[in-house]
Design a protein around this nucleic acid. Structure first.
Lengths: 193, 193, 193, 193
DNA sequence: TCATAAGCGAGACGGTACGTCGTGTCTTACG
DNA sequence: CGTAAGACACGACGTACCGTCTCGCTTATGA
């Protein structure tokens, strides 16, 4: 496979892709810029011209990889929407979970990085989920007096917690069960609070 | 098992305490072994004799600090127990949250570390919370047909998610609100699933 | 053989010169690589990239310093040549004697180092002295049947012995006396052995 | 072989003997006190109670080993005395040469050590040789107007120089040749200076 | 017969230097 | 001009050694 476009955007993608590869192979803490550079047959200057630090590079690789993910799923029912959106999240955690959890520690120390991640990937996922709740309320599926705002984060929080804090698998069946036993009962109950 | 380190145990505590101090002052990534060593007026050999690497040292400091935390709170009501236990967690996150979230990334790559953390701190917190639910069910506060097993993780997961993924504060008021609007309704609802 | 270290050659000289400075200031055993590095405003990697160990660095500094020393002295007489050459040696011992005597112990354990020193500095000094004897014999100053081969080492051996084994000073006057009373009588005596 | 006398002088000899063993095995620079201690199944305190530093220990080992060496050889002729005494030196260099040459570097930095070595081993050897010249002059073997003072060091200096500076062997035949071609001609020549 | 002390083995300790490795900056030469 | 190659300053890591220290154990006496 030749590389007809070495400069510009194509090179950038190669670099980020190499970064992601290394990231998945050795993990965040054992990734070195030299390792990325040598895998991409690049020069350190080429990397540092684009991203001022190692963590910027890693973030860029993450952002680049999560930029074009499936969003807006309208299946017609809240349950369908939730299961679809949470299934997407599950799939993304399979691919990027280890990177995400490594980045998490950085977020507290690097506000700029935090904004990037939170305004990017996380906001996107929140949007998808809150939109599903909003549509359900518009459709009358959810009582109008139920406060749907805090509901979107329940499933993501538990998925993340189970997977990374507890180290237990959390699959599509678990998603379905959680939606049916926790999220929907809270969304549909007659009187809130 | 004899104790050749009889006087050494005290030194160990000093070292871990110094580690924790430095950890809180400069954060996980900026902590240096030299910094710990100089604060404890110790020698690097003294540290490396006990913990083979910097991350082992940090883990030990974390484990040591979370070993003797308040547990078993019996306030007489599920609501009181939950709020007390979650308040403890909030307080622990204030003190060790940054370390915990940094450690999280390591868990996936270091199974031994994962066991240590999960069988230690996390299991302890789960115990406290599941015991609260069990007592409530024994008392008849919760209907006997409700499956309380998955309930304990809801609040910790959301606390963790809010604080580290979303970067939003989560205080005692939020705990109370979450318990009242999410946990208790799920625990007390007449018919489960 | 290309020279990827083109600018590096100058750096190399700076490093060796700094090494020699430190060597003369604090002595062989108290020299530290960090000391050299900090004096040269260099990095340890810069030193270790070139010389794999501290002793290699010191040897290189010594070899570099003794590479371009005055040689070929032709004063017209054997006595003059000898006094000039031995005076050079005296001067070199003043500058590098401590390093040389420290190196001496290493020579027995490090054959490569031994070759370097012996084929370098020592061979150079032997050349100068044996050439002086050869010229004297060519001029007829020394009887043709005298074996001049073993004569060159007499004065250096005694100078070295006096200075380092006995710890007594050995100056230009002593050189003159030694040449007049020992070397020249042996060289000029009518019948050898 | 049992160790009936563990304390006192016997232990001291064991320690010095272990030191000498290690010294001959790994050389001065690679000798460690821990190595000596572990070979002698001793404790560091036991060593440091007797000798305040590593170099003191090594010097003591050397001094202990060279304490009882053959001295005063009176063969009846200067030639015989010289060859006998120089043969002793050759033998001692075979056994302790590497240690001596390593110590040489220390002498310049450690005046106390220098006195010990110079007033001990070296003075002893000088005594033996100058005594041989004195006896020869008393016997009339050497003309009374010859200054024998500087003659004693010629052979030791050359032996040392050849062996350590040049790295060439110097055996009994070389001693004989040197005595016959250099020392005796200088001692016996009719008019000095 | 016992206790009190002195020497000992074992090895932890503070300190210092070593040699390695990673980051981010910079220079050189090539295309 | 952007790039590959890689030298460079900085600084942390983990190791090794020195000389000091503390701990029990053993032995060798003195009561």
């Amino acid at each position: 496979m030749s590389t007809p476009l070495r400069g510009g955007q194509a090179r950038e993608d190669e670099l980020l892709s190499a970064t992601l590869d290394v990231l998945r192979e050795v993990g965040y803490s054992r990734l070195t810029v030299d390792g990325v550079v040598s895998r991409a047959r690049a020069s350190k200057a080429t990397v540092y011209r684009r991203w001022p630090s190692k963590s910027d590079l890693i973030v860029a690789a993450f952002v680049n990889a999560t930029r074009d993910l499936p969003s807006e799923r309208d299946t017609g029912s809240l349950r369908g929407d939730l299961i679809a959106a949470l299934g997407d999240i599950l799939h993304e955690l399979d691919r990027f979970g280890d990177v995400m959890v490594d980045l998490l520690g950085e977020l507290g120390r690097n506000p700029e990085l935090a904004s990037t991640i939170r305004d990017g990937y996380i906001a996107m996922r929140r949007e998808t989920l809150t939109a599903a709740f909003a549509r359900a309320q518009d459709r009358g599926e959810i009582p109008p007096d139920v406060d749907v705002k805090p509901l979107w984060e329940l499933a993501p929080a538990v998925i993340f917690f189970r997977r990374f804090n507890l180290g237990e698998p959390f699959g599509v069946d678990d998603v379905r069960e959680f939606v049916d036993n926790v999220v929907l009962p809270l969304a549909l109950r007659p009187s809130a609070g």
